[in-house]
Design a protein around this nucleic acid. Structure first.
Length: 130
RNA sequence: CACACAGGCCGUUCUAUCGCUGUCUCGUCAUGAGAGAGAGGAAAGUCCGGGCAACACAGAGCAUCCUGCUUCCUAACGGGAAGGGUUGCGGCGAAAGCCGUAGCACGGAAAGUGCCACAGAAAACAAACCGCCCUGCACAGGGUAAGGGUGAAAACGUGAGGUAAGAGCUCACGGCUUUGCAUGGCAACAUGCAUCGCGGUAAACCCCAGGAGUUGAAAGACCGAAUAAGCUAACGCUUGAGGGCUGCUCGUCCAAGUUAGUGGGUAGGUCGUUUGAGCCCCGCAGCGAUGCCGGGCCUAGAUAAAUGAUAGAAGCCCUGAUCUUCAGGGUACAGAACCCGGCUUACAGGCCUGUUUUUUUC
RNA sequence: CGGGAUGUAGCGUAGCCCGGUAUCGCGCCAGCAUGGGGUGCUGGAGGUCGUCGGUUCAAAUCCGGCCAUCCCGA
């Protein structure tokens, strides 16, 4: 199912603090990914938080548009790109997606790049696991 | 009819697929199903004013900051309405003045202090460069503020009297102004008479009048795990760690441990939170801002933060061409965060009303 | 959400309170000195004082509006 409910979003202040303090990160333009394996309630595979810098985009309308496009791309692609791998390896993950590009990307551009980013996320976790 | 100005209003729509956040109904152990709702005129800037909340508070004064023609509207305002005064522009007029229009932080310079570059004799206490007049031999002394020149500004302007020459020194008219009286007006103020005075600057200090307690929903109220640990009660038998009393031993006290109860309170959650100075319609009062009577309506409520994404049509605008059509491009400014009233700023395109002026036709 | 500060030459700054002349250093240009360069000496250019209005005879300075940047509380 292509859903994106509240349980799949990262809301806990404590978890966020741990994520940004201890998490590993990599850059894949236009995204910066910070991730950390965690123990979550049973039914969940991962929790994610999406951010766009106020420094880079002054107007709230622009930030909202980018966040919505990222969220939509994640919603449509998370199942096959990420969840399958996590289930197979009994892993649970929290991570953040930060948009660091300078211009507002189109939906197609963001979707393509997000797929690449998720692929790299899977790869990074597979390495650290082994 | 066009243009300009002023005021008010709107500010995309539809379909398909997949989603997000509340609400209601039904159902379940649980997952769920259906219905209906879901950004703005500025939600923005945070420039003012309030509601609400916590804390503070006998009364009065000082300091600091803000406001500043009058009356009214309002919960309140630095907002708005009407009026007064004043300045610019235009028209009419011989002039006085009147009309139209646009603006005005518009209390006080006659309580006091300061400042007014350069130029100029002098920038307001005083004083005198060229002049003018008087006295006496060149030159010096005295009087003068008319004229020259400087400057943004030169001791109110014009005319007459007066004088050695002159000066509001005196008079007439005029300008601004203080105080008093009269008339009109709720008042600001206007008009008339008498009277006092005459550089500017208070967005210089200041004086006068009025106002301001502080902090902001991350305010504040309530519920409350897990872990550590405080307090109270009981046990503390056997072994006996550690510490206090002592130089040491004994002794005694604290205490380790178990059980029960309990306070504060973290993560997190609920309320505050959307029924309100609310919106729409009709009527009445008022020049108007606005108020009142009656009827109808319930209209986002998120919290690392929803209100969307993709695809396809339609509408509107612009450009070009092979002009009943086709192609290309554009479709603004901008996103609620406790809630209201204003102000300011941004905005593709469009609609309505009123007024002035001009042109054309009858 | 609330609060504070700063915009001056290419760069870094003074002047602003108390209004009339915009200062200093580095850099730039020219000349001198050197065989040439550096260093040194002399001279010069370069400013919508963030922006739009207002007050004033006169505004970088005083008063409003807007824009940008930075910082703080949490």
């Amino acid at each position: 199912m292509y859903t994106f409910k509240k349980e799949e979003r990262l809301c806990s202040k404590k978890l966020l603090e741990r994520l940004f303090h201890n998490g590993s990160s990599f850059l894949l333009y236009p995204f910066r990914i910070v991730y950390l394996p965690e123990v979550l309630p049973e039914s969940l595979n991962s929790q994610v938080v999406i951010g766009v810098s106020k420094r880079k985009f002054k107007r709230a309308v622009d930030r909202n548009l980018i966040k919505r496009r990222i969220r939509e791309a994640y919603r449509l692609n998370k199942e096959e790109a990420l969840y399958a791998f996590l289930r197979d390896n009994q892993l649970q993950l929290v991570f953040s997606i930060n948009y660091v590009g300078k211009e507002i990307g189109s939906f197609k551009f963001i979707e393509k790049k997000l797929m690449a980013a998720l692929k790299q996320l899977v790869k990074a976790n597979a390495q650290s696991d082994s």
